[in-house]
Simulated assay, not measured.
Amino acid sequence: MLNATLGLHDGARSTLLPEFSLAGKVIIVSGGARGVGLTQAEGLLEAGAVVHALDVLPPPDAESEFARVAARAERELGSSLTYHRVDVRDQAALNEIVGGIADAAGGVHGLIAAAGIQQETPALEYSAADADRMLGVNVTGVFMTAQAVARQMIKRGQPGSLVLIGSMSGTVANRGLICPAYNASKAAVLQLARNLAAEWGEHGIRVNTISPGYIVTAMTAGLFEAFPERKTAWPDANMLKRLSYPEEYRGAAVFLLSDASSFMTGADLRIDGGHCAW
């Protein structure tokens, strides 16, 4: 049975869902230094995972939010959060870091590929260099990160789950948001995941995507200052009439990385407040 009812020492009974546990799992989170990636990492730690964060940013200092989460992992959760600085476009460095993690831990069991960039520029003004950078980080970087992790899984004959962070912008064009290269990159991530799922399924590797809607982050806070009309226009575009927060995607990540989604691959989990369902 998937549901386990355990007797506790005081006579109480607790119904658990053990298939959601990530205990004993080693999970890599790219883009994990801050923001949505770090929020996801903390959720994985709470579910029992050991987490390794990859990011291009300088190592976080002792006063950072990352340091807080790392300290909590050690003191409260009996786990660890480790930082590795790398550009996800650097294939050789990615393979070296991921291989080192796998060698030290005896394998890697999952990935959240959350590293990405955004640029709002009209299509007629986009430079080739900016387009190459956008696609390089958001598509090639995601591809190479997934490849590095899958290599270690296949090398050891270990199954696993890869979660690529897409966007509702990979499904629809955002009204009033001029970001053609970004939207194209997220559509590519959705198609990449389907193809990786088809190719690696025989190895027991599942590949799915999460497509968030508009999220309240430091970046969107800056956008609201520059474009105050978006603070009302964006919530009005979905069925719940509000924006989302990074914490609202933690459960989806745990679900996709755990045995709770063991028969799910090649799928997109869109969490957009109904934005795309009109």
Rank of each mutant, 00 (worst) to 15 (best):
G7H: 13
T217C: 02
E120T: 12
R230T: 11
V29K: 11
L196R: 09
T15W: 06
S262Y: 08
L240N: 09
L57D: 15
S127V: 00
L240T: 13
I112T: 04
V108R: 01
A73K: 02
G274M: 14
A71W: 06
F143P: 07
A193C: 07
E125W: 04
A92F: 00
G107R: 03
E229A: 11
G273W: 09
I210R: 05
Q119C: 10
T217S: 01
G176C: 14
R242Y: 10
H52R: 01
C276A: 15
V51G: 11
G11A: 06
G266V: 10
G213R: 00
S64Y: 15
K25G: 11
K186G: 06
G160R: 03
R250T: 08
M1D: 01
I210P: 09
L124V: 01
G160V: 03
G107H: 03
A113S: 14
A123K: 02
K25V: 11
P212I: 09
V163S: 03
A41E: 00
E248W: 07
R85A: 14
D236C: 07
M1N: 03
R75Q: 15
V26I: 04
N208W: 15
P228R: 12
P60F: 09
F66W: 15
L196D: 09
R242Q: 11
G273V: 09
L269G: 12
L124A: 03
V29N: 09
M153F: 05
V254D: 06
Q191S: 13
